[in-house]
Design a protein around this nucleic acid. Sequence first.
DNA 1: GGGATTACGCTACTCAGGTAGCGAAAAGGA
DNA 2: TCCTTTTCGCTACCTGAGTAGCGTAATCCC
Lengths: 201, 201
Amino acid sequence: MVGRPRRTDVDEGVLRAATELLLARGYAGLSPDEVAERAGIAKTTLYRRWPTKDHLALAVVNRLQDHDEITDTGDIRRDLPAYLEKIAAGLNRMRAAGRAPDDDDASAGTVAELVAAAARHADVGELERQMYARRNTLARALLERARDRGQLRADLDVEALFDQLAGALYYRVLITGSPVGRAYAERLVETALRGALSENG
Amino acid sequence: MVGRPRRTDVDEGVLRAATELLLARGYAGLSPDEVAERAGIAKTTLYRRWPTKDHLALAVVNRLQDHDEITDTGDIRRDLPAYLEKIAAGLNRMRAAGRAPDDDDASAGTVAELVAAAARHADVGELERQMYARRNTLARALLERARDRGQLRADLDVEALFDQLAGALYYRVLITGSPVGRAYAERLVETALRGALSENG
DNA sequence: GGGATTACGCTACTCAGGTAGCGAAAAGGA
DNA sequence: TCCTTTTCGCTACCTGAGTAGCGTAATCCC
């Protein structure tokens, strides 16, 4: 490596400042100018590391993700709602970013902006998908173990099932604005596990 | 009514121009300046009718929705995939807006921008939800008829089921970037109808 | 101790979405 | 006819995201 090295403390300072701003004022309030000022660097330096505000915002959210482990008690009816609730908690945190504590409008806030960011920049989309990938791998493994144990159908379409569960959560947050919580996670799992057909359907 | 009346032909001209731009160049290429110019009006007039670009874009998409009727043959296994396919077709059309015919990257394009627009402006969100409401009502009625016929469980959670089906489509378009089409719609319905549990689960 | 190379900070700039303010035009009502 | 009201078009402006270009600082290599 040749040339002047990057200051190693800049990334952390920037992400700290950006996190504060994003949580306090939401996506619209995340101003690159102000982040640079708070972090004590020049705006051009900021842009050298994160080429757009969208990139910066994703970096912030990525760092905020708790690297949740999955608990596998052996009973899919317990483990699955618990895991969905974790996903929902993450969504609700992002949904709440930048608004007053008593503000319960339907807006999806930061979640929606990140989805749009992924659509605007191919590389942001790529990173975002990697962020989800670990989580999805865990969930898929959970389902596959339950299937191997004989609790779930041998010919179950695991991908479709997981899309349905995670999808319903995102759908409510992004599209309908309905609440997602423990109770809803349980309804979801119950509906998906039992199926919709009647005995003679 | 007093005062100078609005020109009645402006709305149509603007929406025509905006539709052309949105379909040809995508959301980022939908420039209010250019729309106004093409429609032969002043930019300030445009903003008097649609207060932001997001409002304008929603108006365009709303007009593009085909007011699809639902077909109810009496067999939910046929009707449900058919209906999901219609939703998917709408999503794929928006997904394709503004890109080259051979461009099949994962981006959600206009769909994602509309979701973000709903998050940015409460009234846009409200309108968007109304747009979905009619569709959801139809689907819910379809499911309820099937339940009343005895094809679906009497105690089925219709809301959760619909969230799962529609949610999976949106999830793939917005989050994972996977394709949604006829084949996927059928996997989805099959998985949701049969349920995930094994016989002895 | 020189280059070569890369990062930093600064100033100045572009570009797009959106706004302010004003004079003129098109109506209805007295 | 004149007054009020509202729309229209225009010019000028604001704001926030992002860029160009330059002088200077820090490092590696010879």
